[in-house]
Amino acid sequence: MRVCSLFSGGKDSTYALHWAVLKGFDVACLLTLRPYRVDSWMFHYPNVEWTRYQAKALGIPQVIHDTSGVKDLELEDLKNAFESVKSEFGINGIVTGALLSDYQRMMINIIAHELNLRVYSPLWRKSQVNYLRDLYSHGFRFVLTSISTMGISPRLLGKVLTLSDIEELIGAALKYGFNPALEGGEGETFVVDAPLFRERIVIDDGEVRKLDQYSWIYVIRSLHLEPKVLVE
């Protein structure tokens, strides 16, 4: 199966890519949709311009398509992007990190079906608490890049989350009623290391910005790739 992996740079799309490689799929490329609007219904916005460093660390070609970010119109952008990578890379499947959003999964499936592409969503309806813990134990490291809900401390923004931080996030989700894996838009992440990364990402500089009472964003200003130290 030759596939394209929808890639936002966050934990879910990175894990879905990891799953595809472990399953023996031929991942021809990463497809990143870059929205013009922060409130896109379909696509990840914060720090998406830095995904090119993740693609380099992975050693997988990346295709970036701009999208209006406007509901419904961005679906046409997605269809055009699928058509483009199908033609260029000869793919017959799409891998997504969809976890809980019925809207996102349904729209991707409908568009892919129109183009005779199969869709694989390995995270769909997984236990989100177990998933977060598994991410850490399997070597995924990521920073929190946005918050849009009560209960998440802004001190976690821009920090490579430890297992203790993840447990804090899970506890807050249970207390305040938000999705622990942040699938409902309560937060966004940016992966700095993963098992498939040939190099790890080091964020050199960033800025925390407050948008309103419960909304914050972490803007990456600079980063670099660093060789991974092999432990014998």
Score class of each variant (00 low, 15 high):
His113Phe: 12
Glu74Phe: 08
Asn80Pro: 01
Ala98Asn: 14
Glu114Asp: 14
Val48Arg: 11
Thr67Phe: 05
Met42Asp: 01
Ala55Glu: 11
Glu49Pro: 04
Leu75Pro: 00
Gln54Glu: 14
Trp41Met: 09
Ala81Pro: 03
Gly93Arg: 10
Glu114Phe: 09
Val85Leu: 10
Leu58Arg: 08
Tyr53Thr: 07
Thr67Ala: 13
Phe43Thr: 00
Glu74Thr: 03
Asn80Asp: 14
Leu78Met: 14
Ile108Pro: 00
Thr51Pro: 05
Glu49Leu: 11
Glu83Ile: 11
Glu114His: 12
Thr96Cys: 12
Val70Met: 09
Ala81Thr: 11
Ala81Cys: 06
Ile60Asp: 12
His44Gln: 14
Arg105Leu: 15
Asp66Cys: 08
Gln62Lys: 09
Ile91Glu: 03
Asp39His: 14
Ile60Gln: 07
Asp66Met: 07
Ala98Leu: 04
Val70Asn: 02
Gly97Trp: 04
Lys71Gly: 00
Gly59Gln: 06
Ser87Gly: 03
Asp77Gly: 12
Glu76Thr: 04
His44Met: 11
Gly93Cys: 09
Val48Trp: 02
Phe89Leu: 05
Gly69Met: 07
Trp41Thr: 00
Glu114Cys: 06
Tyr53Asp: 11
Ala112Asn: 06
Val70Asp: 00
Glu49His: 10
Ile108Glu: 07
Ile111Gln: 00
Pro46Gln: 05
Glu74Trp: 03
Leu78His: 05
Val85Met: 08
Asp66Pro: 05
Val63Lys: 06
Pro46Cys: 08
Ile91Met: 00
Leu78Cys: 07
Asp72Lys: 13
Asn109Phe: 04
Glu114Lys: 14
Val48Cys: 04
Val63Leu: 04
Lys71Pro: 04
Ala81Glu: 07
Gly69Val: 01
Leu78Trp: 01
Leu99Lys: 09
Ile64His: 02
Val38Arg: 15
Gln62Gly: 02
Ser68Leu: 07
Ser84Cys: 08
Trp41Pro: 15
Met42His: 01
